[in-house]
Design a protein around this nucleic acid. Sequence first.
DNA 1: TAGGCCATCTGGTCCT
DNA 2: AGGACCAGATGGCCTA
Length: 358
Amino acid sequence: MPIKEDEYSLEVDMDELDLPTDDEDDEDDYSEIDDQPDSTTGENDKRSTKDKKSGPGRKSRKDDQSDEPKVPKKRGPKKKKMTKARVAKLKIRRYKANSRERNRMHGLNHALDDLRKHVPCYSKTQKLSKIETLRLARNYIFALADILKNGVRPDSVSFAKSLSKGLSQNTMNMVAGCLQLNPRTLLPESSYQKPYQFMYENAMGFTSALSHDPYTAFPTMLEPSHCVQQRHITSSQLSPYQYSVNHTTVPLSTSCLSLQRNTSPIYGGNREASYPTGSMTSQFVRSCDIGVPCDNYANNMNSSGNSFGHPVVDSTQDCGVYTLPDDLVDFQPEPALEQDLGMIHSTTGLFDVNAGHV
DNA sequence: TAGGCCATCTGGTCCT
DNA sequence: AGGACCAGATGGCCTA
C-alpha cells in the first residue's frame, strides 16, 4: 500500500508531538485516525516502522520551531480525535467491511466455478486456476467466434491449439487430455506428426481428418448440399482474435448455422450433424478424473442447484474414448444466458454479432 | 525450498 | 456515512 505524503508527515507529527491533554474531552485515548494501529494484523504498525526508517532526519519540535522553514499547516477539516467509542465503531465498521469483502470474493469465486464448468475442460479434482480459467474461456469464445465467422470446422489439433493460447503447460496438458489429444501435439515446436495422431479418431463422432495433414486436408463441416445460403460477415464483425488455420473453407449457410445453434450446448435442439466444438464445454468433454456425464443429466436439469443443470458425472469411470453423451440434445439453455448473449437474431435464430447492439 | 495459487485483511477511491 | 470495488500485503498450502 503506497504511503501518502501527508500520512508520512502526519506520522512524524504524531511521533514528535507530545499530545497535550485535552481538557475539553473526557476521553483519554487520543490519536489521529490514520495513526491508529490495527489490533488484528498490526499492518499499520509495520507501515509506521517503515516510514520511520525511511523518513528524513527527525527533529524535535523545539528545533522545528527554531531554524527549520515552517511547513504550511494542513488545510481541510481537522481530523477527528480517536475516542474509545470511535475506535470501537471503526473496528465494527472494519469487521463488517471485511465480511462484505469476503462475501464479494466468494461470489466472484462462485462465478468462476460456474465458468469452469462451461469451458472445454473441467475437473473437480484438478481445478483450473482463476487466471487459467479466464484465459481458457477467452480462448474458447474466440475460437467459437472464429468458427462462426469462417464457417469452417477446425480439426481437433487446431481447435486445441487455439484453446491453449497463452495457457500454462499444465493447463495445456489438461486441455489436450480433455480433447483426447496427445499433449505434445500442442507444443509449438510440434508439427503434429503421425505418431501422435492416435486419439481423435472417432472421438467426436465426426469424420476423422487425422489420416491427412490437418492443415491442408480438412473434412467439411457439413455436406455442401446442406449449406445453401451464404452468410456474409463484414470485416467489422471479425473477431479480433485470429488464429491461423489453413484448411478448407466451407461457407456457412443459414442452414448450417441453424444446425450449429441446435447442437450447441447452449441451445437445445436435435443432434443431427452435431458440430463438435459446440459440444466442447466441460460438461461434455470427458476428463480423466471426472468420468463422463451420466445418463440422468436431463433429470438433473432443475435439481442440481445450478441453473445450467450440469450433468452428474460418474467419477468411477476411467478415462477412455470420448463419447458424445446422448443427453447433449436435452440441454436447455438458461434463459438469462440466452438473453444475455444477445447475439442470436430474434427471428432467424442465427448468430448475429449485431443483434445485441440495437 | 522456491514459486504458484489462494484467502483474507486492509486502506483508498468512488459513488449513492 | 456506508457500500462496492480495487489493489497491495501477508501468510498458508501445495507442488515440482
